[in-house]
Design a protein around this nucleic acid. Structure first.
Lengths: 232, 232
DNA sequence: CCGAATTTTTGATCCAGATCAAGTCCCCGT
DNA sequence: ACGGGGACTTGATCTGGATCAAAAATTCGG
């Protein structure tokens, strides 16, 4: 593993405070791999042999049942993923695929669990991470159950604008069909919903979004930190 | 706190392995309260001052947004709830109300966090609990996004029968409207879906369900451990 | 730069599930 | 036992969103 990668991992909240010795041991068993786009990195149901860290590129988490498929999350560097499966030593609940050429760091789950037993700082960080993830999934459930699809889209755009530091114009992070699936809607419905939001000052050109009147959009979207703030 | 209650809490996986000293300290600050039915124990958005343990009775977790409300979970003894909010010292994401007369043990969140910092066994147990909870919410999301409402209901009944150790006849745990909301459907739609499942050998009389032909129902429901097994 | 494949949009239609409106049933307190 | 209120069911209707179909716009490999 490159020095830059080691520093990268180290900077993740989950690894930041653990003892050097433990961190070194974790890195010893780790390896890095670069994948082309559209590679299925992990498949739901399989044993969780590695904790994954996305170092470069883009990854989609998704799930399948009975011939259907839905996007569960879109990841960008630097993030770890499938921590819960690793910790519990249980099969993956979600699958993951690269959306573009991506570099993934693989940490053997056994090592992660072993070091977790020994290093208290690491254990605490894992708790914080899992609690945060848990709360984000709960927020997502509320989003799905309490809002219509157009409301979810409106709030998604508001959040995107926040992420773009409030810029009037910003880019959607991935193709629309993925965002549609993430929000629990079809591409067709997504497209129409976007047009409908034109009434509230949303303009769209390809992946470029312009929010003409944020006030107006927010008034419609009615965001709340209890659903829409990913940090709390 | 009564001796029986102390033993009760102690038997929860999350508290089972911690040091006696730490456990005693946790109990010292704890107190117990009995609530009548329909009392809102906690309200989303409020600071998470206590980790709650349901000792007797029944509790509903629910969430509100923009005048709408949805059931998030139904709890029965003995369970802790809102662990993630406590650990992260963040506002509750869900509200909770008693469905019947209930006894609740309240553990000051500050104590929980303090002891969590000191007692490694407790920290590990918290991780396991959070990872399990996280995975259950993910399963729930898959259930919501990948299945129609009648498929969710069919799988719910299969799970219920499992919980009743496979008995042909068993009782629904709460009023139907709550189950409907939990499954993300209206009471009317719930009622009709139940009738529709008659085709697959489901009979209903009040809260009493009889599964005439489990094979048939399972064939329709297509359960998978990656959604329907709460233990993995 | 061209052609093929994929995504996106638009239109038409369909359907699952919501809403509205009445009953009916059941529980519960007096 | 009776009356009242909520829960449940049933029917009628409506609608958000899905599906089907087919252009239009993009992307990408060669």
């Amino acid at each position: 593993m490159r020095d830059s990668e080691i520093r990268e991992i180290r900077s993740l909240a989950i690894f930041a405070k653990m003892a050097d010795e433990a961190f070194d041991r974790l890195c010893r068993g780790a390896y890095v791999q670069t994948f082309p786009p559209q590679i299925e990195l992990i498949t739901e149901g399989e044993p969780s042999d590695f904790l994954h860290v996305l170092s470069e590129g883009r990854v989609e988490m998704f799930a399948r049942w009975n011939g259907r498929e839905t996007t569960m999350a879109l990841l960008r560097p630097v993030t770890s993923f499938i921590l819960a499966a690793t910790v519990r030593d249980r099969p993956y609940l979600m699958s993951a695929r690269t959306l573009e050429k991506s570099r993934i760091i693989l940490l053997p789950s056994e090592d992660v669990r072993a070091i977790f037993e020994e290093d208290a700082a690491f254990a605490r960080a894992v708790v914080t991470e899992l609690a945060t993830d848990y709360r984000n999934v709960v927020k997502n459930t509320k989003n799905l159950k309490l809002r219509s699809s157009i409301e979810r889209l409106a709030n998604y755009l508001v959040r995107r604008q926040d992420r773009a530091e409030g810029a009037r114009t910003f880019q959607l992070p991935v193709e629309k069909r993925k965002i549609a699936s993430l929000l629990g809607m079809t591409p067709e419905n997504f497209s129409r919903a976007l047009r409908t939001l034109g009434e509230y000052g949303v303009e769209i050109d390809g992946l470029t979004v312009t929010i003409r009147d944020r006030e107006d959009l927010v008034h419609f979207a009615k965001p709340t930190p209890l659903i829409d703030d990913p940090s709390t």
